[in-house]
Write a protein that binds this DNA or RNA. Structure first.
Length: 534
RNA sequence: CGCGGGGUGGAGCAGCCUGGUAGCUCGCAAGGCUCAUAACCUUGAGGUCCUGGGUUCAAAUCCCAGCCCCGCAACCA
């Protein structure tokens, strides 16, 4: 379970000073159950991470948990537990969830860990010393029930507040604020000059629209301990804890710091350091997030980083939300998809395939059980599974499983698909990549129909031709395993095993025609995606 | 004047930025094949590309106006 951290030092020794491909998911609020949205974001990120590794890059993939805040505190108290004990138990569930999804994360951050808290305090001290914060007293309407300040927007048309807020009182509270508003124009200029910073483009436009039409307010970064004590104390004022921004977002750099990233460690010092500042992790290459937290990542976070003197992440990749059966996913109405239940029934790869194939990164999507079954049956069972099964079965039956001489009739098609897939993967076009890979499956199935190996097998004079056809088919299956590995790692491994190959098809470099050697004996064919007749 | 997303053959979608025979998956119909998970291959039927204007030699695609759906705040990715 806790093998994440152990991988990192090993990789470090290989390339200690070169920039690694650093990709993150948002960290999830621990006080909730993992659901489809969480699974989706993690799977997307995992596929990108696996893709980069397959292409030979040194990758660091981070995911984790946000564990501070009022809700956790309250929930823990309600159960009569210490908040840390409460979080520790939940964190095990989330780690199990990551394992269920077979994520290849290199670390798993928890914001209650000392390594994170220490870094947060260090960076807060540094920024405080730099004069980035100031204190101000805010007076406003406060809901004692919800423990939150209300704004004019929360007023009902008749001027009152919704009864759900309970008693609303005027309250004065002094807090620390981060100087955000001064950087508005800088951020606009930056986003305009860097079109790939926020993707897809329509999300970028949304951010620019927001920035151009609204005046930024400075960011309140603290809460009095009297109101919230489950948080990281401000190092310069123990009467406060830091609020979510300087806690959760900072995970993206606190973990690099914990791994010795020089550029991040330097940022906690006010004086210039002679440390080697050659980057190893930071800046992140991609932050994968949901559309709901776009503002935090595309507005607050860049300005925070600017204040810290750190470079900005290269890209914020924003995905959409899932609906189920055309309606909002809602626990209260029972309109939910339980990813664990789906995985248990259909297998992890079927789940990964559906969410990646059904929905492009960006738009909202719609989960339907019928659609899931349809894709499982049509694309996985009848498409991929059947092609591999029929190809290997014929080699087994007609040639006793021995790979014949090289032949390259399908090589041009395969090579084209390999090149296209590679280009699409480089752009994180996961859905289009899958469509492209499937075009090779379709091509191979057509090839069977056109060449009729089962007929050739009945005519001894066609033996050479049969060898040629069989080689093309089996070699195509081998290449498919390599192309599919980032998406369907288990299936790719099973194809490889059925081909009698050792090792994992996890290197894109192996996607070159002619990899299967004549004389090699394949393993036993077996259905990859058993048909489900229910 | 809330904001955002969308209206394309029976269903679900792509195309629209960078105008030029309307494409994909599923479903349906007919045919072929039998190696394979009753899977595979071919062909076909089926579309006022929401409406009305405009620009253009040419608009699903650009511009204007309108109509209609769907989300919107803490269960939230």
């Amino acid at each position: 379970m806790n093998d994440f951290a152990n991988r990192t030092p090993v990789r470090h020794t290989h390339a200690p000073m070169s920039k690694r491909f650093y990709i993150t998911t948002a960290i999830d609020y621990v006080n909730g159950q993992p659901h489809l949205g969480h699974a989706y974001e993690k799977v997307i990120t995992d596929v990108i991470a696996r893709t980069r590794r397959s292409l030979g890059e040194d990758v660091f993939f981070l995911t984790g948990l946000d564990e501070h805040g009022q809700k956790v505190q309250q929930a823990a108290v309600a159960e009569g537990k210490n908040p840390q004990v409460y979080c520790d138990a939940l964190a095990e569930d989330w780690k199990a969830f990551a394992k269920k999804l077979e994520l290849t994360n290199d670390d798993f951050v928890r914001t209650t860990e000392p390594r994170h808290k220490q870094f947060v305090q260090a960076i807060l001290s540094r920024l405080h010393a730099d004069g980035q914060f100031y204190q101000e007293t805010y007076e406003g309407f406060y809901s004692t029930k919800e423990e939150t300040f209300l704004t004019e927007k929360d007023r009902l048309p008749d001027g009152t507040f919704d009864p759900a807020y309970g008693e609303v009182v005027r309250l004065k509270e002094t807090n620390y604020w981060f100087k955000l508003k001064a950087h508005q124009q800088w951020l606009i200029d930056y986003i305009e000059a860097n079109p790939s910073f926020v993707q897809p483009d329509y999300r970028r436009n949304e951010v620019l629209g927001f920035l151009k039409n609204n005046e930024l307010e400075d960011l309140c970064i603290s809460r009095p301990v009297a109101r919230l004590n489950w948080g990281i104390p401000l190092p310069f004022d123990n009467d406060y804890v830091t609020y979510v921004w300087f806690d959760a977002l900072v995970n993206y750099i606190s973990i690099p710091a914990a791994h010795g990233d020089a550029i991040v460690l330097n940022s906690t010092n006010t004086q210039h350091s002679t440390l080697n500042t050659q980057p190893s992790l930071w800046p992140a290459d991609i932050h994968v997030i949901g559309k709901d937290i776009l503002k935090f990542h595309a507005v607050f976070w860049p300005i925070m980083l600017k204040a810290m003197g750190l470079p900005l992440p290269k890209q914020i990749l924003v995905h959409g939300w899932w609906q189920k059966d055309g309606a909002k996913i809602s626990k209260s109405t029972g309109n939910i998809v339980d990813p664990v239940a789906v995985i248990d029934e259909w297998g992890l790869d079927a789940f990964r395939f559906y969410v990646l194939r059904e929905l492009d990164i960006g738009p909202d999507g719609n989960w339907t059980d019928a659609g899931f079954k349809s894709r499982y049956q049509a694309e996985l069972a009848n498409g991929l599974g059947n092609l591999v099964n029929r190809s290997l079965s014929m080699l087994k039956r007609y040639r006793n499983g021995v790979v014949p001489s090289l032949h390259d009739e399908l090589a041009p098609d395969a090579t084209k698909v390999i090149a296209d897939t590679r280009a699409l993967l480089g752009q994180c076009e996961l859905q289009k990549a899958l469509q492209t890979i499937w075009s090779l499956i379709t091509r191979a199935n057509q090839y069977v129909d056109q060449t009729k190996p089962f007929s050739l097998a009945k005519d001894p004079s066609q033996s050479v031709r049969l060898d040629q056809v069989l080689y093309n088919l089996v070699e195509t299956c081998r290449i498919l395993a390599v192309l599919l590995w980032p998406f369907l790692p288990g299936t790719a491994a099973r194809i490889n095993a059925q081909l009698g190959l050792s090792g994992s098809p996890d290197k894109f470099a192996a996607a070159v025609w002619g990899g299967l050697k004549p004389g090699h004996t394949i393993g036993e064919p077996a259905a990859l995606f058993p048909r489900k007749d229910t």
